[in-house]
Design a protein around this nucleic acid. Sequence first.
DNA 1: ACATTATATAATGTACACATTAGATAATGA
DNA 2: TCATTATCTAATGTGTACATTATATAATGT
Lengths: 67, 67
Amino acid sequence: MHLRIDEILKQKGKTRYWLYIQLGLSYQNFKKIVENETKAIKFENLKAICDILECTPNDLFEEYYKK
Amino acid sequence: MHLRIDEILKQKGKTRYWLYIQLGLSYQNFKKIVENETKAIKFENLKAICDILECTPNDLFEEYYKK
DNA sequence: ACATTATATAATGTACACATTAGATAATGA
DNA sequence: TCATTATCTAATGTGTACATTATATAATGT
Protein backbone atom coordinates (compact mmCIF):
# COMPACT_ATOMS: atom_id res chain seq x y z
CA MET A 1 0.00 0.00 0.00
CA HIS A 2 1.66 3.19 -1.14
CA LEU A 3 0.64 6.69 -2.19
CA ARG A 4 0.40 7.55 -5.89
CA ILE A 5 1.17 11.25 -5.51
CA ASP A 6 3.65 11.45 -8.37
CA GLU A 7 1.19 9.76 -10.75
CA ILE A 8 -1.59 12.18 -9.87
CA LEU A 9 0.76 15.16 -10.16
CA LYS A 10 1.75 13.95 -13.62
CA GLN A 11 -1.92 13.59 -14.64
CA LYS A 12 -2.52 17.17 -13.50
CA GLY A 13 0.67 18.52 -15.09
CA LYS A 14 1.95 19.77 -11.73
CA THR A 15 5.34 19.41 -10.02
CA ARG A 16 6.30 18.11 -6.59
CA TYR A 17 7.51 21.64 -5.79
CA TRP A 18 4.09 23.05 -6.55
CA LEU A 19 2.41 20.59 -4.17
CA TYR A 20 5.11 21.14 -1.54
CA ILE A 21 4.40 24.89 -1.57
CA GLN A 22 0.64 24.33 -1.39
CA LEU A 23 0.95 21.91 1.53
CA GLY A 24 3.35 23.88 3.68
CA LEU A 25 5.15 20.81 5.02
CA SER A 26 8.93 20.83 5.27
CA TYR A 27 10.46 19.63 2.01
CA GLN A 28 12.22 16.79 3.85
CA ASN A 29 9.02 15.33 5.21
CA PHE A 30 7.07 16.08 2.07
CA LYS A 31 9.65 14.14 0.04
CA LYS A 32 9.42 11.16 2.41
CA ILE A 33 5.65 11.05 1.98
CA VAL A 34 5.83 11.31 -1.82
CA GLU A 35 8.56 8.67 -2.05
CA ASN A 36 6.73 6.35 0.32
CA GLU A 37 9.36 6.35 3.01
CA THR A 38 6.74 6.91 5.69
CA LYS A 39 4.69 4.27 7.47
CA ALA A 40 1.86 6.53 8.61
CA ILE A 41 0.26 9.84 7.76
CA LYS A 42 -1.60 12.52 9.69
CA PHE A 43 -5.24 12.79 8.72
CA GLU A 44 -4.86 16.54 8.23
CA ASN A 45 -2.07 15.98 5.71
CA LEU A 46 -4.00 13.26 3.89
CA LYS A 47 -6.97 15.60 3.65
CA ALA A 48 -4.82 18.52 2.49
CA ILE A 49 -3.23 16.39 -0.24
CA CYS A 50 -6.67 15.22 -1.40
CA ASP A 51 -8.05 18.77 -1.37
CA ILE A 52 -5.12 20.23 -3.29
CA LEU A 53 -4.95 17.38 -5.81
CA GLU A 54 -8.76 17.33 -6.07
CA CYS A 55 -8.88 13.60 -5.44
CA THR A 56 -10.02 11.13 -2.77
CA PRO A 57 -8.03 8.79 -0.50
CA ASN A 58 -8.92 5.90 -2.80
CA ASP A 59 -7.26 7.73 -5.68
CA LEU A 60 -4.09 8.05 -3.61
CA PHE A 61 -3.91 4.45 -2.41
CA GLU A 62 -2.84 2.69 -5.61
CA GLU A 63 -4.60 0.05 -7.64
CA TYR A 64 -5.66 -1.83 -4.56
CA TYR A 65 -8.54 0.50 -3.84
CA LYS A 66 -9.50 1.57 -7.34
CA LYS A 67 -12.78 0.25 -8.57
CA MET B 1 -12.04 14.24 8.88
CA HIS B 2 -12.66 11.24 11.05
CA LEU B 3 -12.98 7.46 10.71
CA ARG B 4 -16.43 5.90 10.53
CA ILE B 5 -15.45 2.55 12.01
CA ASP B 6 -18.39 2.24 14.41
CA GLU B 7 -20.86 2.98 11.60
CA ILE B 8 -19.38 0.30 9.37
CA LEU B 9 -19.27 -2.20 12.23
CA LYS B 10 -22.95 -1.51 12.87
CA GLN B 11 -23.76 -2.03 9.17
CA LYS B 12 -21.97 -5.37 9.30
CA GLY B 13 -23.48 -6.41 12.64
CA LYS B 14 -20.04 -6.75 14.24
CA THR B 15 -18.64 -5.45 17.55
CA ARG B 16 -15.59 -3.38 18.33
CA TYR B 17 -14.23 -6.39 20.20
CA TRP B 18 -14.50 -8.52 17.08
CA LEU B 19 -12.50 -5.98 15.04
CA TYR B 20 -10.02 -5.53 17.87
CA ILE B 21 -9.31 -9.27 17.89
CA GLN B 22 -8.99 -9.38 14.10
CA LEU B 23 -6.60 -6.43 14.04
CA GLY B 24 -4.27 -7.50 16.79
CA LEU B 25 -3.64 -3.95 18.03
CA SER B 26 -3.61 -3.22 21.73
CA TYR B 27 -7.13 -2.43 22.94
CA GLN B 28 -5.98 0.99 24.15
CA ASN B 29 -4.72 2.10 20.77
CA PHE B 30 -7.53 0.41 18.92
CA LYS B 31 -10.03 2.35 21.02
CA LYS B 32 -8.26 5.63 20.31
CA ILE B 33 -8.46 4.97 16.58
CA VAL B 34 -12.15 4.02 16.71
CA GLU B 35 -13.03 7.02 18.88
CA ASN B 36 -11.01 9.38 16.71
CA GLU B 37 -8.53 10.35 19.37
CA THR B 38 -5.65 9.87 16.95
CA LYS B 39 -4.27 12.39 14.49
CA ALA B 40 -2.56 9.92 12.17
CA ILE B 41 -2.67 6.27 11.20
CA LYS B 42 -0.16 3.72 9.96
CA PHE B 43 -0.81 2.61 6.40
CA GLU B 44 -0.64 -1.03 7.50
CA ASN B 45 -3.41 -0.45 10.04
CA LEU B 46 -5.56 1.45 7.59
CA LYS B 47 -5.16 -1.38 5.11
CA ALA B 48 -5.90 -4.04 7.74
CA ILE B 49 -9.07 -2.21 8.81
CA CYS B 50 -10.22 -1.94 5.19
CA ASP B 51 -9.44 -5.60 4.51
CA ILE B 52 -11.24 -6.84 7.62
CA LEU B 53 -14.25 -4.54 7.17
CA GLU B 54 -14.26 -5.24 3.40
CA CYS B 55 -14.32 -1.55 2.61
CA THR B 56 -12.09 1.14 1.11
CA PRO B 57 -10.43 4.19 2.66
CA ASN B 58 -13.16 6.39 1.17
CA ASP B 59 -15.75 4.36 3.07
CA LEU B 60 -13.85 5.04 6.29
CA PHE B 61 -13.35 8.78 5.84
CA GLU B 62 -16.88 10.05 6.42
CA GLU B 63 -19.21 11.91 4.13
CA TYR B 64 -16.47 14.13 2.83
CA TYR B 65 -15.15 11.50 0.47
CA LYS B 66 -18.35 9.66 -0.36
CA LYS B 67 -19.58 10.11 -3.87
C1' DA C 1 -18.65 -22.05 38.51
C1' DC C 2 -16.01 -20.72 34.88
C1' DA C 3 -14.63 -19.31 30.14
C1' DT C 4 -15.33 -16.11 26.78
C1' DT C 5 -17.21 -11.88 24.92
C1' DA C 6 -17.23 -7.05 25.25
C1' DT C 7 -15.94 -3.23 27.13
C1' DA C 8 -12.94 0.05 30.15
C1' DT C 9 -8.61 2.57 32.70
C1' DA C 10 -3.61 3.57 33.89
C1' DA C 11 1.58 3.66 33.58
C1' DT C 12 5.74 3.36 30.96
C1' DG C 13 8.53 2.83 26.69
C1' DT C 14 9.88 2.90 21.60
C1' DA C 15 9.52 4.26 16.86
C1' DC C 16 8.64 7.57 13.72
C1' DA C 17 5.89 11.69 11.44
C1' DC C 18 6.71 16.15 11.13
C1' DA C 19 9.13 20.73 12.45
C1' DT C 20 13.09 23.64 12.27
C1' DT C 21 17.38 25.49 10.73
C1' DA C 22 20.86 25.43 7.55
C1' DG C 23 22.68 24.49 3.76
C1' DA C 24 23.37 22.84 -1.63
C1' DT C 25 22.83 22.46 -7.20
C1' DA C 26 20.78 23.69 -11.57
C1' DA C 27 17.29 25.71 -14.89
C1' DT C 28 14.43 29.49 -16.35
C1' DG C 29 12.85 34.17 -16.87
C1' DA C 30 12.83 39.26 -15.95
C1' DT D 1 22.57 39.17 -12.70
C1' DC D 2 19.31 37.87 -9.70
C1' DA D 3 14.80 35.99 -8.16
C1' DT D 4 12.13 32.09 -8.47
C1' DT D 5 11.31 27.29 -9.69
C1' DA D 6 12.56 22.74 -8.75
C1' DT D 7 15.02 19.69 -6.70
C1' DC D 8 18.40 17.68 -2.99
C1' DT D 9 20.98 16.60 1.97
C1' DA D 10 22.03 16.77 7.08
C1' DA D 11 21.36 17.61 12.20
C1' DT D 12 18.43 18.10 16.12
C1' DG D 13 13.94 18.29 18.58
C1' DT D 14 8.86 17.50 19.72
C1' DG D 15 4.57 15.12 19.58
C1' DT D 16 2.18 11.05 19.13
C1' DA D 17 0.90 6.21 17.21
C1' DC D 18 1.36 2.03 18.91
C1' DA D 19 3.29 -1.67 22.27
C1' DT D 20 3.31 -3.73 26.72
C1' DT D 21 1.79 -5.02 31.23
C1' DA D 22 -1.57 -4.89 34.57
C1' DT D 23 -5.91 -4.22 35.93
C1' DA D 24 -11.30 -3.88 36.18
C1' DT D 25 -16.59 -4.64 35.29
C1' DA D 26 -20.53 -7.02 33.41
C1' DA D 27 -23.14 -10.12 30.18
C1' DT D 28 -23.66 -14.57 28.09
C1' DG D 29 -23.08 -19.40 27.46
C1' DT D 30 -21.60 -24.10 29.01
